[in-house]
Design a protein around this nucleic acid. Structure first.
Length: 833
RNA sequence: GCGGGAGUGGCGGAACUGGCAGACGCGCUGGAUUUAGGAUCCAGUGGGUUAACCGUAAGGGUUCAAAUCCCUUCUCCCGCACCA
C-alpha cells in the first residue's frame, strides 16, 4: 500500500476489475428479496452535467447500500434517446440523428463509467433503437385497440420554433417547455391518448403512494383537478339548450347572465339574424387570435360582448342575457358558464364592467350584503335568500338540495369535471418512433399489424432548415400497401411523443434482451414495482403521470404486474453555482469531467452527497470539494498507519476486559454504524451519514494517538477500520475497495454484509446530564445511566455550583427527564419560612 | 390570487418525539513540523465590556423547557394561473 493515495491509479484499477468480474450484473433470484433502484435515464446530450452526477451519485449510494443489506438489487441505466436536439444537429452539421445520438451515448456512457456507478450495463436500453421503439409502437397499438388512442381535429399547441405540436403539460406559462418560444394555436388532426379515462384512478391512487413526496402528489392532484358540480340546462329563446357547469348550484337564483366561450358552437345559432351578430363575430375572431398567454393571464382584462339573445333560468324561469367572453374556455366543462356576480369574483368584475345585474342569494350570518355597493363577491356559505322555496336554508344544504332537484326534474345532471385533458402524442418530427398507422383510401385508418413492427425510421432522408419533418418527403417510407386490402396506402408521417418512450422503460429493464415481446412478464413480476425512483422535480407531472397512466393501461390488459410503477420517489434539488442554476449563458458551469480528472470520482461523489440533503438545492463550492478530497486522503492515511495493527490480526477480546478508551471507541463505532444505516434507509440524509463517518474517522485518530495500548487494542482498531471501510463503500466505492484489499479483507468490499450494530457496545455506564435552573443550563453532572426521578434530582442538588445558585431560594418544582436533564424551578423563598 | 416549501454563525448545513442550538465540513486565528511554500497534525472559532446576558426572519403566545407547537407579519423559492 502506498503512503499516499493515488486516485488515478486506484479508481481505474477497480473499475476494470468490476467490469471484468461482472460485479454488478444482476439476475432474478427467488431466494433473495429484490430491490429495484432506478434513476431517471438521461437524454444523451453528449455531456454529463452536475445535475446528472448528483442524481447518479444518490442512486448509487442507495443501490450499493441495499446490496450490502443483502438485497438482490437491480440498478440499470439507459437512454431517453429520441428528441429534437439530434435533428437540430443534423440540420446544422449534416450528421444523421442516429449517428449523432449514438456518438453521444458512447461518450456519456464513458463519463458515467468514470463515476464508478454500479450499473448492470448488460441491461442498457436506448429508446431510439429499433429493438426498443418497436415496443413503443406496440404500446401505441395496445392503446389503439382498446380505444385509448384516437385521432381528432382540434386547435392544438404549436411551437413554431420546434415546428411541432405540444401536449398541454409541455406548455409552461404559454411557452414551449423545451425551447421557451411562445406557443401558438394551430388547427390540426392529431393522435391523442385518452388519459382522461384514467383521471379518477390517477387521482385516487395517489393515496397509495405513501413513499412519494406530498408536494409531487399535490401537484398531480391539482393538475388532474377534479371538481364536483352540476351541469344545468338553460333554454335560449330559440329553443336551444345551453348547458353550463357549476360547482355552486346553490347560487343558481343569483344568475344574471350566461357566458359562452367565443368558439362555442351555439354562438352562431344564437346570433343568427341579430343586430349584434357582426360585433360578436368580430370579437370571437379577435379572441381566437390572442395567444394562450394573453388569453389566460390572470391579470388579463375580461372582455365580452352581448349576443342579443336571452335564456331562461331553469329554476326561476327568469330571462337572462347571453354573452360571449374571453375568460370562458371551450375545453373545460361545457364551454359555457352562468354568471353569478354576487358570489363569484370574476363574475362580479365582469358584471361591473358591463353594468349587468348583481343579485344576492346568500347572506352571510349577521350581515346584509348590498348588491349595489359590493366590491368583493361573497363566496362563503351563508343563508339562502331570493331563492324561492330554498330561502332560509343553509347554503351548503341548499347546494345538495338544488343539485338533487335539478337532476330529478331533468333540468340537468350531477357531474364531475377534470381539468386534465387528453394527451396529445403526435409530433411533426423525424427523430421519434413512427406512429404505426397506415391510411388507405379504401379502408381508412388501418393500424400496422403487430407482426409488421417495427415501422422503421428511414435513414436516407434530407434535413433542411425549413422545420418540416423529413418524413413528409421520404417517399419509400410514405408509400406502402394497406395491410387489410393490399391497395397502395401511405403511412402516418408523425412520430410518437418521446414521453411515451420513457413511460415504460422501467418495465423493459426487467428483461431488456427480449426480442419477441416488450418484456417478460414473469421477470417484471419479480422486479416491479421500482422500489426507489430518483430524479428531478421537474418531472413531477409530465413523466411521472404519464408513466403511471401507461402502467395502469398495461395492468388493465394483464400486461403489467402492478398498477403503480414507483413505490418510493425521491426528488432531488438542483445543483447551483453562485445561487443560480448552472448554464452556459451564465458562465457558471462546473464540468464533472474536470472534477473527476482533478480529484477523482470518489471526491466528486462525496462532495455532492455531503454538501446538502438530496431534496434541497445544492450550492457548488470549490473549497468544499477540497474538503471532500482532504477527507478521503485522511481516511487513507489513517488506514495506512493502522495497517500493522489490523492486517492479519485476529486478536479477540473479552468485552468485559476492555479499557475505558476501548469501550468508548467501540461505542463510537457502533453508533456510527447505526446512524449511517438510519440516515440512508429512513431519511436519505447522506450528508449526515457522511458527517457521522467523518466523526468516526476523527475518533479513531484520537484513539490511536492519545491512548496507551491496553487489552483489546488491536482488535478494536481492526473492528473500527473494518467498519469505516464498509460504511464508506456506498459513498466512495473505489477508495473503500482499495482499502479493503490493503487491509487483507476477503473478496470485494461491495459483497460484504453491512456491519451489524452491537447493542452491547452502545451501552454506557455513566452519562452526562444537564442541570437547568429555571430552564437555563447551569451545570452538568455525570450519573449512572439507570438513574431516574428522585435520584437524578439528588445528584443535581448535590452539585456545589447548583447549591450556590439556589441558595436562599425555594425549589418549587423539579422536572427530571431520564437520560437527559434535571430542571429545577426555583423562586425567591417567601419570608414566612 | 390559490396551493406548497423554506428562512439557524462569515459560508454549506446539524439538532429524529419540545429537553445542552450551531454536529460535520468550509473559511478564519494561533501553534507544531518544514530552508520555504504546500501538505499534514494539534488547539480555538455565534455575539458579547469574557460574565451577566443576548442569540434560530420579526412580533406575540402556550410550556418547567420552543429552531421545533399555536397566532400575526415579512422575505425568498417552487407549482398552478380566469377551470366556472
Amino acid at each position: 500500500m502506498e503512503s499516499r493515495y493515488n486516485f488515478r491509479v486506484v479508481e481505474k484499477k477497480w473499475r476494470q476489475r468490476w467490469e471484468e468480474s461482472g460485479a454488478f450484473l444482476t439476475t432474478e433470484d427467488s431466494e433473495k428479496e429484490k430491490f429495484y433502484c432506478l434513476v431517471m435515464f438521461p437524454y444523451p446530450s453528449g455531456n454529463l452535467h452536475m445535475g446528472h452526477v448528483r442524481n447518479y451519485a444518490i442512486g448509487d449510494v442507495v443501490a450499493r447500500f441495499y446490496r450490502m443489506q443483502g438485497y438482490n438489487v437491480l440498478n440499470p441505466m439507459g437512454w431517453d434517446a429520441f428528441g429534437l436536439p439530434a435533428e437540430n444537429a443534423a440540420i446544422k452539421n449534416h450528421i444523421p440523428p442516429a449517428e449523432w445520438t449514438w456518438a453521444n451515448i458512447n461518450k456519456m456512457r464513458e463519463q458515467m463509467k468514470a463515476m464508478g456507478l454500479s450499473y448492470d450495463w448488460s441491461r442498457e436500453v436506448a429508446t431510439c433503437s429499433p429493438d426498443y421503439y418497436r415496443w413503443t409502437q406496440w404500446l401505441f397499438l395496445r392503446l389503439y385497440h382498446h380505444g385509448l388512442a384516437y385521432k381528432k381535429r382540434q386547435a392544438v399547441n404549436w411551437c413554431p420554433s420546434c415546428a411541432t405540436v405540444l401536449a398541454d403539460e409541455q406548455v409552461v406559462a404559454g411557452c414551449c417547455e423545451r425551447c421557451d418560444s411562445e406557443v401558438t394555436k394551430k388547427d390540426l388532426e392529431q393522435w391523442f391518448f385518452r388519459i382522461t379515462a384514467y383521471a379518477e384512478r390517477l387521482l385516487d391512487d395517489l393515496e397509495k403512494l405513501k413513499g412519494w413526496p406530498e408536494k409531487v402528489k399535490l401537484m398531480q392532484e391539482n393538475w388532474i383537478g377534479r371538481s364536483r358540480g352540476v351541469e344545468v340546462k338553460f333554454t335560449a329563446e330559440n329553443g336551444e339548450e345551453i348547458s353550463v357547469f357549476t360547482t355552486r348550484p346553490d347560487t343558481i337564483f343569483g344568475v344574471s347572465y350566461i357566458v359562452l366561450a367565443p368558439e362555442h358552437p351555439l354562438v352562431e345559432e344564437l346570433i343568427k339574424g341579430k343586430a349584434e351578430a357582426g360585433r360578436v363575430r368580430e370579437f370571437a375572431a379577435r379572441v381566437k387570435k390572442q395567444s394562450e398567454i394573453e388569453r389566460t393571464s390572470a391579470e388579463g382584462e375580461k372582455e365580452g360582448v352581448f349576443t342579443g339573445a336571452f335564456a331562461a333560468n331553469p329554476l326561476s324561469g327568469e330571462q337572462v342575457p347571453i354573452w360571449v367572453a374571453n375568460y370562458v374556455l371551450l375545453e373545460y366543462g361545457t364551454g359555457a358558464v352562468m354568471g353569478v356576480p354576487a358570489h363569484d369574483q370574476r363574475d362580479l368584475e365582469f358584471a361591473r364592467k358591463y353594468h349587468l345585474a348583481v343579485k344576492v342569494v346568500i347572506q352571510p350570518l349577521g350581515d346584509d350584503l348590498d348588491p349595489a355597493a359590493m366590491k368583493e363577491a361573497y363566496a362563503a356559505p351563508g343563508v339562502m335568500v331570493n331563492s324561492g322555496v330554498f330561502n332560509g336554508l343553509d347554503s351548503e344544504v341548499a347546494r345538495l338540495k338544488i343539485s338533487g332537484c335539478i337532476s330529478e326534474k331533468g333540468l340537468g345532471e350531477e357531474k364531475i369535471n377534470y381539468r386534465l385533458r387528453d394527451w396529445l402524442i403526435s409530433r411533426q418530427r423525424y427523430w421519434g418512433a413512427p406512429i404505426p398507422i397506415i391510411y388507405c383510401d379504401r379502408c381508412g385508418v388501418v393500424p400496422v399489424p403487430e407482426e409488421d413492427l417495427p415501422v422503421l425510421l428511414p435513414e436516407n432522408v434530407a434535413f433542411e432548415p425549413t422545420g418540416e419533418s423529413p418524413l413528409l418527403k421520404a417517399e419509400e417510407f410514405l408509400k406502402t400497401t394497406c395491410p387489410r386490402c393490399g391497395a397502395p396506402a401511405r403511412r402516418d408521417t408523425d412520430t410518437i411523443d418521446t414521453f411515451v418512450c420513457s413511460s415504460w422503460y422501467f418495465l423493459r429493464y426487467c428483461s431488456p434482451g427480449e426480442s419477441g415481446r416488450s418484456y417478460d412478464l414473469n421477470k417484471a413480476r419479480y422486479w416491479m414495482p421500482v422500489d426507489q425512483y430518483i430524479g428531478g422535480v421537474e418531472h413531477a407531472i409530465l413523466h411521472l403521470m404519464y408513466s403511471r397512466f401507461i402502467t395502469k393501461v398495461l395492468y388493465d390488459q394483464g400486461l403489467a404486474p402492478v398498477d403503480e410503477p414507483f413505490t418510493n420517489l425521491l426528488t432531488q434539488g438542483m445543483v447551483l453555482k453562485d445561487g443560480a442554476k448552472m448554464s452556459k449563458s451564465k458562465g457558471n458551469v462546473v464540468s464533472p469531467e474536470e472534477i473527476i480528472d482533478n480529484y477523482g470520482a470518489d471526491t466528486a461523489r462525496l462532495f455532492i452527497l455531503f454538501a446538502a440533503p438530496p431534496e434541497r438545492d445544492l450550492e457548488w463550492s470549490d473549497e468544499a470539494v477540497d474538503g471532500a478530497y482532504r477527507f478521503i486522503n485522511r481516511v487513507w492515511r489513517l488506514v495506512y498507519h493502522l495497517l500493522p495493527e489490523i492486517k492479519g490480526n485476529q486478536t479477540q477480546w473479552e468485552a468485559g476486559a476492555l479499557g475505558a478508551a476501548e469501550k468508548a471507541v467501540r461505542r463510537v463505532i457502533h453508533r456510527t454504524i447505526q446512524r449511517v444505516g438510519d440516515d440512508i434507509k429512513t431519511r436519505f440524509n447522506f450528508n449526515t451519514a457522511v458527517s457521522a463517518i467523518m466523526e468516526l474517522t476523527n475518533a479513531l485518530y484520537h484513539y490511536t494517538e492519545g491512548t496507551e495500548q491496553s487489552s483489546g487494542h488491536s482488535g478494536v482498531l481492526r473492528e473500527g477500520a473494518a467498519a469505516l471501510i464498509t460504511l464508506l463503500a456506498p459513498f466512495t466505492p473505489h477508495l473503500a475497495e482499495e482499502l479493503w484489499e490493503a487491509a487483507g479483507g476477503e473478496g470485494s468490499v461491495h459483497d460484504q454484509r453491512w456491519p451489524e450494530v452491537d447493542e452491547e457496545a452502545l451501552q454506557e455506564d455513566e452519562i452526562t446530564i444537564v442541570v437547568q435552573i429555571n430552564g437555563k443550563v447551569r451545570d452538568h453532572v455525570r450519573i449512572p445511566v439507570e438513574l431516574k426521578g428522585k435520584e437524578m434530582e439528588d445528584a443535581a442538588l448535590a452539585r456545589s455550583r447548583v447549591k450556590e445558585l439556589i441558595k436562599g431560594k425555594e425549589v418549587a418544582r423539579v422536572i427530571s427527564v431520564p437520560g437527559k436533564l434535571v430542571n429545577l424551578v426555583v423562586r425567591q423563598s417567601s419570608s414566612k419560612k
